[in-house]
């Protein structure tokens, strides 16, 4: 067991939690609604985000043992479990982003620490610093093409790929967990900006926002 101090970042009482898009999305009385939307936008708030850093081999063993998933070793790979709720994404040769349903992250962090023992690694809970925006609909690729210089063509960006790149001058992680769905992992401080940018960019295709 490592001697790092850990703590549960999620309050145990019923304190109010606010997502980075609390004001611009969740507290708005009416949201954009198109009759035949080309883009359907929604936030996946309060998920558990963990950054794992360390050697690929030790980390892979621990992740297999604790999560029952293999660590993606290939650059820019994204793997999800069968339910699609838990995912691990390659960020750099010694860094991975794990996203799990909200509330699971602390237990997962403890189990991983237990499994990794005294090896050289770091696990950081970054759930408070970023959030996930989901982009669906037939025009979602067109919206991305307007905003990102990275090539999002089918051949270059298949399902199961994720990159961190520049989105309208902001740094985001773009991932494609399913055929018709894209995810943007955005920083808290850029969340409002990215959300408004997406609304504006998607306007011409018709955009609906769901809570």
């Amino acid at each position: 067991m490592s001697d790092v101090k850990e703590f549960e970042t999620r309050p145990a009482d019923d304190s109010k939690a606010e997502s980075p898009l609390a004001w611009s999305l969740h507290e708005q009385k009416s949201l954009p609604h198109a009759s035949n939307p080309g883009v359907i936008l929604s936030e996946k708030p309060f998920l558990g985000h963990l950054i794992l850093r360390g050697g690929a081999i030790v980390m892979d063993e621990a992740v297999r043992e604790v999560m029952g998933m293999a660590l993606p070793a290939r650059p820019l790979a994204l793997v999800s479990d069968d339910s699609g709720e838990r995912s691990i994404q390659w960020l750099s040769p010694d860094e991975w982003l794990v996203i799990v349903p909200g509330g699971e992250e602390f237990a997962l962090e403890q189990k991983l620490r237990q499994s990794l023992g005294q090896s050289h690694f770091s696990i950081v809970n970054v759930g408070g610093g970023q959030t996930v925006l989901s982009l669906k609909g037939k025009a979602s690729r067109d919206v991305l093409m307007k905003s990102i210089s990275y090539d999002v063509h089918e051949e270059v960006f298949p399902v199961g790929k994720g990159v961190s790149t520049v989105f309208a001058k902001a740094t985001v992680i773009l991932r494609r967990p399913e055929e018709d769905g894209w995810e943007l992992v955005i920083r808290r401080s850029f969340a409002d900006y990215c959300y408004r940018w997406l609304l504006d960019a998607a306007k011409e295709y018709g955009v609906s926002v769901t809570r």
Binding site: P75, L76, S92, P93, S149, Y150, V163, T165, V166
Partner: peptide, 12 residues
């Protein structure tokens, strides 16, 4: 050489 692909200059 780590991402093993070509990226836009603005990322560097």
């Amino acid at each position: 050489p780590y991402c093993k692909e070509h990226r836009e200059e603005e990322e560097f």
